[in-house]
């Protein structure tokens, strides 16, 4: 009895110390320039599961834990906006078992993190689900609506969960909206408005959700491609980083060098 109490106390102390150390480290990093908007391509869940002899579904579940971990670190660093690539439109090509498991995971976890007292409320994060949500099953769509509603009044930070997302789809939608805008402007004042690149940029899903410009994009598991993620947003003045770590293993120690590189670049850039 005494022994188990002692070991539990020791565990609690170790955990508290680790949390404090993390918070101190984040506070130190936050003394330098911090990206306003960070995007993650959460790649490597399946390879992680395979390398640990686990089921694919478990890999995805651990990927969600990594998302919570990274989100908390970003909030501690005062990152204003985090975008994550949760599901690509192309991912519907995967086996029905895996797609179903991912949808079930999305449905439960979405509502979980939006509850009062949980992560998003703790840091005042507003959740936006970006992408062609009409492709999702109705129960997931309902969960999305509810989750977005639960965090609507949060205004300190933004989490963009991209699912099912594709950048070309986003750009095509933005072009459509810009054309509609120009047509209604033309109808209102009889002019012939020209669409500029800024008009299109303003209609992108991330911009409509209030996100600042993308400063840093991180893809895990060593793949060096964008795979149709935030193409418009990241092709200019965005630092692209490819980390060899699988997403479920990705943590503060992988992220610190990336932030230090970001700061090195921010300091080296000529003052505009």
């Amino acid at each position: 009895m005494d022994l188990s109490f002692l070991s539990r106390s020791a565990q609690w102390l170790v955990r508290a110390a680790a949390t404090n150390a993390r918070n101190v480290l984040c506070a130190i990093l936050a003394a330098g320039p911090i990206p306003r908007h960070v995007a993650f391509v959460m790649d490597g869940n399946r390879r992680y599961a395979r390398s640990h002899q686990k089921r694919v579904q478990e890999g995805h579940a651990e990927g969600f834990i990594a998302l919570r971990r990274m989100l908390e670190i970003c909030m501690r660093l005062n990152v204003r906006c985090v975008s994550v690539y949760a599901f690509a439109i192309e991912n519907f090509k995967r086996t029905p078992d895996e797609v179903d498991a991912l949808m079930a995971l999305a449905e439960t976890k979405l509502l979980e993190i939006c509850q009062h007292g949980d992560l998003l409320h703790q840091y005042g994060v507003r959740l936006n689900v970006l992408g062609k949500t009409s492709l999702l099953p109705p129960n997931v769509q309902a969960a999305i609506r509810k989750a977005e509603e639960l965090t609507r009044d949060n205004d300190r930070a933004i989490l963009n969960l991209c699912m099912p997302y594709a950048a070309r789809n986003e750009m095509a939608t933005a072009i459509d909206l810009a054309i509609d805008g120009a047509l209604s402007k033309a109808a209102a004042d009889g002019t012939h408005p020209e669409i500029t690149e800024d008009d299109i940029a303003a209609e992108l899903m991330t911009a409509r959700a209030g996100s600042p410009p993308l400063d840093l994009l991180v893809r895990t598991s060593g793949v060096r491609r964008l795979s149709d993620f935030l193409l418009w947003q990241c092709c200019e003045n965005t630092q692209l980083q490819f980390s060899p770590t699988y997403w479920p293993d990705f943590g503060l120690w992988d992220f610190v060098p990336i932030v230090l590189d970001y700061q090195r670049r921010a300091w080296a850039a000529p003052v505009a």
């Binding site: 950048a167 070309r168 193409l231 418009w232 092709c235 965005t238 630092q239 980083q241």
Partner: peptide, 10 residues
């Protein structure tokens, strides 16, 4: 550090 310097996104 990789930056795409405005390369066509599409």
């Amino acid at each position: 550090l990789l930056d795409l310097h405005g390369f066509p996104p599409w």
